[in-house]
Amino acid sequence: MPPTVPPTVRFGLNVDPHAAGLPVAERIARIADDAGLDLVGVQDHPYLADHLDTFAVLAWLAGRTRSVRLFPNVANLPLRPPAMLAKQAATIDVLSGGRFELGLGAGAFTDAIVGMGGPRRARGAARAALSEAVDVIRASWAGRGYAHQGEHYALPGVRPGPRPAHDIGVWLGVLGPRSVRLVGAKADGWSVSSSYVAPARLTELNAAITGAAEEAGRDPAALVRLYNVAGRITDGGPDGAREGVPADEPGAVQGPPRLWVDVLSALHAERGMNAFVFWPDGDRERQSRRFAEEVVPELRARLADEG
């Protein structure tokens, strides 16, 4: 039996929705499923010509896995109207037997979004639209007819359904100190990447999330705080590799499994992160297997000992 790990610590793998890479995507998802990992995330960039539709890929993977949870990391809100997004999420949740979570972002790469007919929103407007979309999505999942008239979305008469198979979590992919407050105020989790946010910034941003949750009368400890960690698992000693793990700037981790265990353990204990999704650099399938089989078991054992 694997050691018991606090239920708030989760581990997962990234899958890319490349049209030419479906066999690899399926094998990586199965690695996560077979190894007992918690999550498989799929990025959502609809404007990229070589990317399949992320929600179709998630539904496809749901039929090829048994227990791992699936989520868009994160869904592009400007190109996905929230009421329809809620239906898509609920549908995959039903099809997967309650294994879907909704990562949601305000939308980067504005020119590409506009090129596909999406809105051009300034930062404040994008944040407001994201907040409003969370309300629309939750109203849709409640299963009762409703109307919504907001600054960014007007829905005069929604007949929502189906109901999700479980209470889907809404995890926001946001970066700024004002935007992360939305996580604490009304979402269920946060998804952020090491390539955009350095470890040193996590403390400040987590504090903003916790403060907003407490102000809203919500339990901060119940929130998912997910760090997408890019890098490569290598062989050899940890000393040289450790020099390549700066705390004060975005970047990738590179080193042997023991270094990865040290880094992720510190991110959990010192920075407050409680979920980790691995984005491998290089041979994605082999690297994903190493993370699942060499890093996660050791990390789970350490967390169990420390817990």
Score class of each variant (00 low, 15 high):
residue 5 V to L: 07
residue 6 P to I: 04
residue 8 T to Y: 12
residue 10 R to W: 05
residue 12 G to K: 00
residue 17 P to L: 08
residue 18 H to W: 15
residue 19 A to Y: 04
residue 21 G to F: 04
residue 22 L to E: 15
residue 22 L to I: 14
residue 30 R to K: 10
residue 34 D to N: 12
residue 37 L to G: 08
residue 38 D to L: 04
residue 40 V to Y: 10
residue 41 G to D: 02
residue 45 H to N: 07
residue 51 H to A: 01
residue 51 H to T: 02
residue 56 A to T: 15
residue 57 V to F: 10
residue 58 L to R: 02
residue 59 A to Y: 05
residue 67 S to M: 04
residue 70 L to Y: 10
residue 71 F to Q: 12
residue 71 F to C: 11
residue 72 P to F: 09
residue 73 N to E: 09
residue 76 N to R: 01
residue 80 R to W: 12
residue 82 P to S: 10
residue 83 A to Q: 12
residue 85 L to D: 10
residue 85 L to E: 13
residue 90 A to Y: 05
residue 96 S to N: 10
residue 97 G to C: 12
residue 97 G to K: 08
residue 99 R to C: 08
residue 100 F to G: 07
residue 103 G to M: 03
residue 107 G to H: 06
residue 110 T to G: 08
residue 111 D to Q: 13
residue 111 D to R: 11
residue 113 I to H: 06
residue 114 V to P: 14
residue 115 G to I: 12
residue 121 R to T: 03
residue 122 A to F: 12
residue 122 A to S: 14
residue 126 A to D: 03
residue 128 A to F: 10
residue 131 S to P: 02
residue 131 S to C: 01
residue 134 V to C: 11
residue 134 V to S: 07
residue 137 I to F: 08
residue 137 I to S: 04
residue 138 R to A: 09
residue 138 R to W: 02
residue 140 S to K: 00
residue 140 S to D: 09
residue 142 A to D: 11
residue 145 G to D: 15
residue 151 E to L: 07
residue 152 H to M: 04
residue 154 A to G: 09
residue 161 G to H: 04
residue 163 R to E: 12
residue 168 I to P: 14
residue 169 G to W: 00
residue 172 L to I: 12
residue 177 P to Y: 06
residue 179 S to I: 03
residue 180 V to S: 00
residue 181 R to S: 01
residue 182 L to S: 05
residue 183 V to L: 05
residue 183 V to K: 06
residue 185 A to T: 06
residue 186 K to H: 01
residue 187 A to V: 08
residue 194 S to K: 05
residue 197 V to T: 15
residue 198 A to H: 05
residue 199 P to Q: 03
residue 202 L to R: 11
residue 202 L to S: 03
residue 205 L to H: 07
residue 205 L to G: 06
residue 206 N to S: 14
residue 207 A to L: 07
residue 208 A to C: 14
residue 209 I to F: 02
residue 210 T to I: 14
residue 211 G to D: 15
residue 216 A to V: 08
residue 219 D to H: 11
residue 223 L to G: 12
residue 235 D to G: 13
residue 236 G to H: 05
residue 237 G to T: 14
residue 238 P to L: 14
residue 243 E to L: 15
residue 244 G to A: 15
residue 248 D to V: 12
residue 249 E to C: 10
residue 253 V to R: 01
residue 259 L to R: 01
residue 262 D to N: 06
residue 263 V to N: 02
residue 264 L to T: 03
residue 265 S to Y: 09
residue 266 A to P: 00
residue 269 A to G: 11
residue 269 A to T: 13
residue 270 E to A: 13
residue 271 R to F: 06
residue 276 F to D: 06
residue 278 F to R: 00
residue 279 W to I: 08
residue 279 W to H: 13
residue 282 G to C: 01
residue 296 V to S: 13
residue 304 A to P: 12
residue 305 D to Q: 14
residue 305 D to L: 14
